[in-house]
Design a protein around this nucleic acid. Structure first.
Lengths: 220, 220
DNA sequence: TTTATACAATTTGTATACAAATCGTATTCA
DNA sequence: TGAATACGATTTGTATACAAATTGTATAAA
């Protein structure tokens, strides 16, 4: 049920019956799925009103940017301290999938695998309290990345490439149990993500030259 | 459904049918309640195995003590910054209930109202990410307080009295929007709670004098 | 006596039927 | 023409019935 991280628009309400038909299950298990997704912050359930896809307002967005570094950094530290050796190979496997997805330029798949990558690191921290926060953060982070994604820009490939490299470095730091390094790399990674998001909040200004606009008029 | 914060033992499994009969509702809504409580960290649901009350192992306990100050302090800061004036009266109302509960020496009710007090402060922070963490922390904190509670000890009344005072001070700091003060008071409050818990992890040693034990033999 | 297997009983998961509530539309009255 | 109300249709919530799975017990074989 990763319909949410991707296609369905925030705020839209979900048709219970339609989804039941689509997935070939009855209403009872579907409602239980709704309950779980609601608890995870994917959906909002209202009395006698059904399920809506959760959406983000401005104040929540501020909190997101304010809180994310702290959560991510502490998760990284704890992961480096408490990772079990058997957790490393699955993480590396996801990273390889992530690498190929970025090389293929598959944005949706990249975002999803990035989500799974950071979630796995979250599990390594073995801290149930921060894990719930991380879960909510990742959901919103992934969705922000998706909504703000633009297909092909100049600096974009280099940024994505850098992100893949940072993941590699983070794996090494966690594997070698170097908490401070893991924190530093994670904050770098966050700043890269910030750059990416900032590019869309404050994009390049439109050309001041009015002739360009006049030309477009004919095209429309 | 505050059955959990109090009576039912951690690890015990819940009888679906019995609870349905008890609350006069059918299995479907009860299962939906289970789903929610499971998401909140009250219960653990296992495949075809029903619901068990969540329990805490040693490593989770370590994480609890490691994580709590950070979460509580940041919640306090954000609450002082972002509280809405209409949120203050309900908080004060809970505090008054808490005060009377402590004066009556009602430990269970005190713990529950303390829980509600800190939850209300969490809501004032308007940070959904930290709020999920706070929720899990408070559940475990309240349960720890309960399990470690001993009825009447010398230092206990003064500690509880101090806790009530600290709550008052916290309300004032939040109402006056003094984030730094709110953080300081919250950390003091946490340390008081730590003292309380420590008293039970390392209680007064048993008397070394063997004669006392011999005397008891006859009594048994 | 102990262990393994089969069967019964209980418990959990899913589907469906029915009740309650909400929403849209149409008709009526001002 | 506009607003309000009433009625029908759709959607959501709850109960119950049935299927699947698990657990406990009893009996038989080693």
């Amino acid at each position: 049920m990763r319909i949410l991280t991707l296609e369905i628009a925030p705020g839209s309400d979900l048709d219970e019956a339609a989804l039941c038909a689509q997935y070939g299950i009855s209403r009872t298990p579907m409602r239980e799925i709704f309950q779980r997704l609601s608890g995870d912050g994917y959906l909002r359930l209202e009395q006698n009103r059904g399920a809506k896809v959760a959406s983000m307002d401005l104040s929540v967005m501020r909190m997101f940017f304010q809180t994310a570094p702290m959560i991510y950094a502490n998760i990284a530290r704890l992961a480096a301290e408490h990772r079990r050796v058997e957790q490393i190979p699955p993480l590396k496997a996801i990273q390889e999938e992530f690498r190929t997805a970025t090389e293929d330029g598959d944005a949706g798949r990249s975002a999803l695998l990035n989500h799974r990558f950071h979630w796995k690191i979250g599990l390594m921290a073995h801290n149930p309290y921060l894990l719930t926060s991380l879960n909510r953060m990742l959901i919103d982070h992934t969705r922000l990345s998706q909504t703000f994604y633009r297909p092909a820009s100049k600096g974009e490939e280099t940024r994505v490439y850098k992100a893949v490299e940072q993941h590699d470095a983070m794996i090494t730091a966690i594997e070698n149990q170097e908490p401070e390094l893991a924190v530093e790399l994670t904050l770098d990674h966050w700043n890269l993500s910030l750059d990416r998001l900032e590019q869309f909040v404050t994009p390049d200004p439109l050309p001041l030259d009015m002739t360009a606009i006049k030309d477009r008029k004919h095209a429309i």
